[in-house]
Design a protein around this nucleic acid. Sequence first.
DNA 1: CATATCAATCGCAATATTACGATGTATTTG
DNA 2: CAAATACATCGTAATATTGCGATTGATATG
Lengths: 109, 109
Amino acid sequence: MGVTQSQKFNTRENKLADYARALAHPARIAILQFLIKQKTCFCGDIVEHLPFSQSTVSQHLKELKEAGLIKGEIEGVRTCYCINEKEWKTAQKQINNLFDNYTGYNDCC
Amino acid sequence: MGVTQSQKFNTRENKLADYARALAHPARIAILQFLIKQKTCFCGDIVEHLPFSQSTVSQHLKELKEAGLIKGEIEGVRTCYCINEKEWKTAQKQINNLFDNYTGYNDCC
DNA sequence: CATATCAATCGCAATATTACGATGTATTTG
DNA sequence: CAAATACATCGTAATATTGCGATTGATATG
């Protein structure tokens, strides 16, 4: 989203939307699940595991990294990806913060 | 996303991505927060509260409704919107299911 | 140092999202 | 029943996302 639009909202709303956007594609959900499950987490492993090309997977990894949910470290010719523990927990908290705000007592329909 | 692509993934991954996509815009986050906070929840109230036109707000409401997170009921000339309690909780569970899968012991970077 | 491997990035086409004004539809009110 | 009100939907332009092949760059290996 452009800068003009994001300025209409506060930091919390924008950050929350950013986390959600990172999760808003089944390929990225699948990548995250794979990273959680596997101990080895090279890009190539993910490419083998998903029905997408190397460039596409690399781009999804980039978006997850930019959202902060994962981190990648270059190990020689490979890059090792894994969950970014700290921001992973932050994201979960922020999202639950929204969900928990609803206590179920304002059902007006 | 097109049908061709979503077939590459399982129902759970697709549904999770759908919930996330509904939350992937600060305007929709703001709408949800407003619905949670207010007792009256007519479309017009939201339009007054947000820096968007009536048609834009209506479209965001439609997307939230299609994702299942809210429901709307026509009350004469107005439409009353509120959180869809059941699916709201389902969404929270599904999302937490993903987050909780990560236990923090596979940091390989 | 030539070659192979791995992954990031570029360029591009297809598709999706976003936002809005204009219009349509139903309901209420005078 | 005419006018006003509230909202949905349509049409459209601008922008963003998605996916891939091709290329690049960096490291390893013979």
